[in-house]
Every structure is written in structure tokens, then in C-alpha cells.
Write a protein that binds this DNA or RNA. Structure first.
Lengths: 316, 316
DNA sequence: TACATTTACGTAACCAGTTACATAATTAAC
DNA sequence: GTTAATTATGTAACTGGTTACGTAAATGTA
């Protein structure tokens, strides 16, 4: 089984499963050794009931981390063996109150020595290791509770992919992409307006030659995001951030974030001290991004666009 | 799920199972995220085949640590999906040679980025822990390979129980036990002889009053083992170790060992320098015990007992 | 007070593995 | 050259869990 040596950590799951099996396989014999007539899989249920209180199926399930049907099955097996007894709750007809029978309590007495021996055996094994399995499990449980493995992997993917993104200056070859990417979202959520066409059909004349700038995000050399910095007439601001668009196919690569930061950097290098933008609150991810980039909501600035219902600014 | 906090290490198995589940549950979604049309459970098989060589079912099973029927099922599922192809071995008609199909190889290309992201994710999780799960698993695998959990527990049990054994001096109240325990094994393997009855019916007159000693092992105050030190006439020896018997019901508690050591200690305190015994080689556990106690085989000493075919001595 | 929602729980079907068993092909032994 | 033992594989049945679903009781709400 050289498998794990070569495949590495990709197969933690498989490896854990095999270890679990190895640890579990002797369980039946161990119970026999102590003359305890119990199925190992009943143990967690047995244990929580051994405290004496009657419990409902779901309460047991929750405590031991099983599904309720699993507990339901275990209980009916234990009832058959006479280890536990069931009793309908008088005040709540749904509840099935389960508790240890006399025989169950008797077994609980016998099992105490087994507890200590197994516990000591596991501690003896641990004493022979450098790395504490028990504590490591607890840490993993905690970390995966906070953030699932899926999320951890997603972050790695995003990280790796964002390193493949290059932010470059606009060139005439990107005009089509600049238009297409913007038309895509504008026509999805709103209607294209006259001002849109002016800027998108002729970014050269309408944006760049008026002192503006455009940045393009390339993913594997394909333009997947654009963003413009438009020179404003209003003396309170230097530039407006506008025409920001990211291809839906390239989501999850932090392209908006990279583009936004690059454009702020560009503005800074041009000596700007305050950037303006306008948007619409139905574009939640965009608004979120703007907040993350340091923009703050302002009120009372007029807009030529019908679709805008929020204005923001970002001091540099 | 406070369960594990209170039950402690007795439930490692359960706890490992839950962690395995938690790690495994996202696997399907992770494959989806990378557009890889593969069932997570196929992965180990897929991985070993991705090295390019055609392999038999059993070779795969052995390498990944599954049973062969498991691999057999996985392969037929993968064949159905077109990921692998089967081919009967020409020189050995039993063998089913399995290898990746073109489609399988294609997926192998796509999956590479997934490998690195998952590996990095797991390393990122590990970096947030104090205790290294991966290394801890490897250590446990190794230790359980050497000695199963059952054996570890057995040792703990023996250790604990042997602490409940008390070795005490003979008293008339133990005469019945002294006789019964000896009759039990003698009549099981041989026939009771005249010399046996003399010693067992009257240990007081036959052993103690002739300068001998008897020790009794009590387990929870019940006599479960006996052993006598009989004064010898032969000037070469001080005492003979004889009439050692341990109840079969009390096996596995090291009683023979404790009794043997106590009797040697007693002999030493009496100033003896050499102990003699005779036995029969069909009593393998007994002979083993004598060797462990430091006895060595000698030849050419006459015995009054028919059943003896081996003589041993132990210098003190 | 009636109706929708939630909760408790059992049953059924599924899942990913296992062991047990049967069969065919190969290899070893007399 | 038979016959016995071993090996490779597939099929069936089992295991210890799950999710999906249905029903009845309790609870919340208009």
C-alpha cells in the first residue's frame, strides 16, 4: 500500500477511512473479552443513556453526531436485546423517551473496567507517538467547523487563478472586449443608454483623449475584465471610476478586486486625490466590491444615467 | 455534540469516522468545481492507473488498501463512464488488465490543478494546527500494524488484573484449593499418582513440617493459584519447586509469573542457592513460564513421578 | 379557531465499503 | 498426467451509516 506515500495529502479522506477501520475492527472482540454482550456500534447511544436520564431519539442523535434514523435503528436493536426501554412521553405524544433497562444498567457496571483499559491502551499508543492524534483531530474538527474543506479549496483555487490574471493598459485591440463585457451586464440588468454607446464605441476619443484611462484584465491572455477612469469636469473630483465589467465566466478569480486596486493605483500615480463613481444597489456584488475598495456612499450628486441610484467616493 | 468531551478516548473510532465524513462530504462538489466528471470514490483507483501501466484488479486493490470486490465494482462503474478499458491477459486468462482510456487520460490532465489546490488547502489547514494530523495518522498506522488495538487492550487488562492478585502464605483454610487446583491439571493431562495424594491431602505434614513452603495467589480474595517449595534430600539442591497450579478461569492475569517470582524470592530469603523442578514437555505454557523464570534444562536426575520427562534448575 | 409551519420519529431506499462464496485458470506436487 | 492447492475475479449478501419521505403531534399565526 505505497499509495499514500505517492498520492500525498490529496487522499486524507481515504487514509482516515482505513485508519478508522483498523481501529474499529477489533471492537467486537474487545467487548467479548470483557463478557459484555454489546454491539460496538451501540456504544455511543449506550454511553449517553448510561448517565441515567431518559432521552428522546433526536436528543441522543444530536449529542452523538448521528442522524436520527441511525439512532432509531440502534434503539430498536437494543430494545430487542433488552438493554433499553421505550416510553411515550405523556405531555408530548411525539416523543419516545428511551432509558437503560435493568439489564442495561447491569452491563454498564461490567463495562467500566473495559473503559479504563481501552483508555489506557489508547494512551499507551499515544505515548509511543510524537504527534498527538487526539489533539490533531480536535483541531481539524474545529477548523472544518469554521470553514468547510470546500471553502478552503475554493480559496486556494482563487489564489492560484488570480496569479494568472494580468492587468494591462488599454490598446485598440481591446475595444471589442471593452464594449462586449459592458454591454453584457448593462443589457442584462438595465437598458443601454445613449451615453453608453458613446463611451463604448469610441473609448479612444471619448475616454482616453479626454484625459482618462482604461485598464484591462487578461486571464491566460484573454480579456475578461475592464475598467475605466474618466476625467471629470466637477472640480470636487479628479476622476470617475466607470465601465467596470468582469466576464461572468471568469468569476471567482478576484478579477474585480485586482482591477479595482490597479485603477486606484493608476489614479494615485496621476496625482488624483478623490475618485467618484455611481452605480445601482441591485448590483450587490459590485457595491460590495466598491466598499471593499474603500468607497463610501455619498448623496446629492447628479447623474446623466437613469440607472444610477447610488453615488460613492474614495479619497486617495 | 459534547459527547466526545465526556466519553474521552474510548470513542476514538467514532470520532475518526465523523471527521472522515466531514472531510469527505465536500468531495463531490470539489470535483464539480473543476469540471471533472468523476465519483470521489473512484479516485484511488484512478490515481494508480494514471501512472499509465495496465494493472490487474487485485494489484490495484492491494495498492490502495481496498478489498478486490470493491475495486471490481469501481472498475465496472468507470468502464460504464468510459474512463477505463479492460483487456483479458493473453498469457493468463484469469487476469483482467485495466488501464485508462483516452477519456480517462484527458481527465487526468484536467485534474492536475485540482490536486495542487486540494493539497495546498490541506497544508493550509495543517498550518493552522499545532498537531500534525498527517504524521499522527502515519504513526498510528505503523503502531497498529505492529500490534493490533486488541493486543494493546489485552496488555492493559492483564496489567490491571495482575495488580489485583495477592500472593500470601499458605494457611490450613487453603488446603482444599491447594488440592483442587492441582488435581484439575494433573488429572486432565495425566493420572493422579500415590505421591500426589500424599502431598495434596496433607500439605501440612508432608511439605510444611518437612521444611517446605507453600504460597497461594488470591484474586479478589479467592485462591486461584498455588505453588510449593519442597525441601529436598539431594544435597545438590535446596528446594524443589512443585505443585504449581493456576486456575484456567484466571488465565491471562500473569498469575503463574507472579507466583513463580514470589516463590523464588521466598527461596532466596531462606538462603537457598539452587532450585530444582521436574515437569513434562506437553505442558508447553508451563515450560515456557519456567524458562521465563530463569530455569534451565538439565539431564539425568531421577524422578519419583512417571509423568516427568524434563528436569530443570535455577541457580539463585 | 383554523391553517401553516415545525418537530419527532419511523420506514424505505441508497451508499461505500465489507465478507462469503463460486468459478475458472494457473501452478505445484506426486 | 492427474490431482490438489493457489490465484484472479465476479456475484451476492451483509453492515453501518446516510438521505428522502411520510405521518402525527405540537406550536405559531392570521
Amino acid at each position: 500500500m505505497s499509495f499514500f506515500d505517492t498520492v500525498g495529502k490529496f487522499a486524507v479522506g481515504s487514509r482516515l477511512r482505513l485508519l478508522t477501520e483498523k481501529i474499529t475492527e477489533d471492537a467486537t472482540q474487545i467487548y467479548q473479552m470483557y463478557g459484555v454482550d454489546m454491539n460496538p456500534k451501540w456504544f455511543p447511544v449506550f454511553y449517553v443513556l448510561s448517565r441515567g436520564e431518559a432521552m428522546t431519539i433526536t436528543a441522543i442523535a444530536k449529542e452523538i453526531g448521528h442522524s436520527h434514523p441511525s439512532v432509531s435503528k440502534i434503539i430498536s436493536e437494543m430494545v430487542e436485546k433488552g438493554l433499553v426501554k421505550e416510553k411515550k412521553d405523556k405531555t408530548d405524544g411525539r416523543r419516545n423517551m428511551v432509558s437503560l433497562s435493568a439489564k442495561g444498567k447491569d452491563i454498564n457496571g461490567k463495562i467500566q473496567e473495559q473503559y479504563t483499559d481501552v483508555k489506557n491502551a489508547i494512551e499507551a499508543i499515544s505515548a509511543n507517538t510524537q504527534h498527538d492524534l487526539w489533539k490533531a483531530i480536535a483541531e481539524w474538527e474545529f477548523l472544518l467547523e469554521q470553514k468547510s474543506l470546500l471553502r478552503w479549496v475554493q480559496e486556494q483555487k482563487k489564489e492560484r487563478e488570480s496569479q494568472k490574471v494580468k492587468i494591462v493598459d488599454y490598446q485598440p485591440a481591446y475595444q471589442q472586449a471593452f464594449k462586449d463585457l459592458n454591454v453584457e451586464w448593462i443589457s442584462k440588468y438595465f437598458k443601454m443608454e445613449a451615453a453608453d454607446y458613446k463611451a463604448l464605441d469610441n473609448p479612444q476619443g471619448y475616454i482616453l483623449e479626454n484625459g482618462g484611462h482604461i485598464l484591462v484584465a487578461l486571464y491566460e491572455d484573454v480579456p475578461v475584465g475592464v475598467c475605466a477612469l474618466i476625467k471629470m469636469k466637477d472640480p470636487a473630483y479628479d476622476y470617475e471610476l466607470a465601465k467596470m465589467a468582469v466576464s461572468p465566466a471568469a468569476q471567482g478569480k478576484s478579477i474585480g478586486w485586482l482591477l479595482g486596486n490597479a485603477i486606484l493605483e493608476k489614479a494615485r500615480s496621476l496625482g488624483a486625490t478623490k475618485i467618484y463613481l455611481e452605480s445601482n444597489t441591485i448590483l450587490k456584488p459590485a457595491i460590495n466590491l466598491y466598499y471593499k475598495l474603500g468607497f463610501e456612499k455619498i448623496i446629492g450628486h447628479p447623474s446623466p444615467y437613469e440607472r444610477c441610484n447610488i453615488q460613492m467616493e474614495r479619497p486617495l
